[in-house]
């Protein structure tokens, strides 16, 4: 029962981060600023949600469910390694194309 409560709380907080990421993706002025919510808030959302899901499927505790939990954690590790690289690739492409970052007072793009 306590486990279910923890799982639900983790999932809902993760959903809050996902929603914030999507809202920021729609609202922010240019793509340098859009990368902040889209890349990072989604990353921490994935961490919280997968933590909750692996906790949920861990019971009843067997070898198979423990291995499944480890696999889920492997996805989190991979996302945390890959997301800075992907972010950097996108930013680099923008810089080489000569796009100036949005500054205060510029028109909305």
């Amino acid at each position: 029962m306590v486990i279910t409560l923890i799982v639900v709380v983790l999932l809902l907080v993760g959903l809050l981060f996902f929603t914030g990421g999507t809202v920021g993706l729609l609202r922010f002025p240019d793509f340098y600023s859009r990368l902040h919510p889209a890349g990072k808030l989604d990353g921490i959302g994935v961490l919280l949600v997968i933590l909750g899901l692996s906790l949920y499927q861990l019971f009843p505790l067997t070898v198979a469910s423990a291995v499944t939990g480890l696999k889920l954690m492997l996805i989190v590790v991979f996302v945390f390694l890959a997301s800075p690289t992907a972010t950097h690739a996108i930013t680099d492409a923008g810089l080489r194309a000569g796009m100036e970052p949005w500054k205060k007072g510029d028109p909305w793009r």
């Binding site: 920021g24 990072k40 970052p101």
Partner: peptide, 25 residues
């Protein structure tokens, strides 16, 4: 990461977000 994620979350949902952000390098 959690602390600054909360800050960016606050920025995302803020109604007057365009006045609050000031992107700089």
């Amino acid at each position: 990461i959690l602390l600054s994620a909360l800050h960016v979350l606050y920025l995302c949902f803020h109604p007057r977000m365009p006045e609050l952000i000031d992107p700089q390098i």
